[in-house]
């Protein structure tokens, strides 16, 4: 067994751009390789949007912040948004004309989609990923694994009894261990999404357990906590939280004198914990072209 020489490694690990400058700035370049990153948010905050965009960005050349690789998208929430991926890939193709100038590649060709129905199914799939990475018929090696979402796999199958919870925790560590091994062996970025649960104040005080930089997580005006509890929180390297709040904008309509009310969703990405990032946050919006920064 030989130690790795840290001095000879590049001082910053490879990062995968999100395609949004503000988020990249907040994350110091994007999602790190050889690391497990979790995105926690309630539905409709843009978890899947961000993951789809990352899957496309992975094929960007390294000079453009990508990983020069393909993406494997494991989805357990149905249906998979093929239409949306297609829409994103078209605008992705257009916004990166230099990369696709020489060949008539479709960006979708480098996003592999696999459904996951249950935890056992996931354990069937994961050993096959090794072979999949090794199989380099593709122009791009596999560089990103997305699991969207881990919560959907667990939320139906297990009871809230001590023995079931213990079994569940052991499975968390098994999944995380295997994914981290893949990430380490092939220098992959691994992104996992997770749902939230509403926080109900209880007498034992544990539901208010603080994990990470933020004292409370608020989304849509409710206090929430990431699903799957403390055991799962130990399994990820970084945790990001996307919150959503609706902002009402009143516009005075000059002609008729009446005012129209429009609601704009404010989405904010916050760093809950991460070994290499300080606590910070940034706002973004979702457009037909994907996730992008707010115009000032």
């Amino acid at each position: 067994m030989k130690p790795q020489n840290l001095g000879r490694q590049s001082p910053t690990s490879r990062k995968l751009t999100t395609g949004c400058e503000i988020i990249d700035g907040c994350l110091r370049g994007g999602f790190p390789c050889n690391s497990l990153t979790e995105i926690v948010a309630e539905s409709g905050c843009g978890k899947t949007q961000l993951c789809l965009q990352l899957s496309l960005c992975a094929q960007l050349p390294i000079s453009h912040g990508g990983l020069d690789g393909s993406a494997l998208y494991l989805h357990s929430e149905f249906p998979f948004p093929f239409r949306r991926l297609h829409q994103l890939s078209r605008s992705f193709h257009q916004s990166n004309p230099s990369i696709y100038a020489n060949h008539n590649d479709n960006p979708c060709d480098h996003v592999f989609v696999q459904n996951v129905n249950s935890v056992d199914h996931l354990f069937d799939i994961m050993p096959r990923i090794d072979a999949f990475v090794g199989n380099t018929k593709n122009r791009f090696p596999l560089k990103l694994i997305v699991l969207d979402s881990v919560a959907a796999l667990f939320r139906s199958e297990f009871d809230n009894t001590p023995s079931d919870l213990r079994k569940r925790a052991s499975l968390f560590f098994k999944i995380s261990g295997k994914l981290k091994q893949l990430a380490n062996n092939f220098d992959l970025a691994v992104v996992i999404t997770n749902q939230v649960t509403d926080l109900v104040e209880s007498s034992d005080g544990l539901s208010g357990l603080r994990i990470g930089n933020l004292r409370y997580l608020y989304s849509s005006g409710r206090r929430v906590v990431p699903a799957l509890g403390l055991a799962w929180a130990n399994c990820v390297n970084s945790r990001f939280f996307i919150s959503r709040s609706n902002e009402t904008i009143c516009k005075e309509n000059d002609e008729s004198g009446r005012s129209s009310v429009s609601i704009r969703a404010q989405r904010r990405l916050e760093i809950v914990f991460s070994p290499h990032l300080p606590g910070s946050s940034c706002e973004f919006k979702i457009t037909p072209e994907g996730i992008c920064e707010l115009q000032a």
Partner: peptide
């Protein structure tokens, strides 16, 4: 120092 990393949380950029 010997650093044994079982979780993959050691970031070279942070150590630097």
């Amino acid at each position: 120092a010997i650093y044994i990393d079982t979780e993959g949380s050691f970031m070279v950029e942070r150590a630097l």
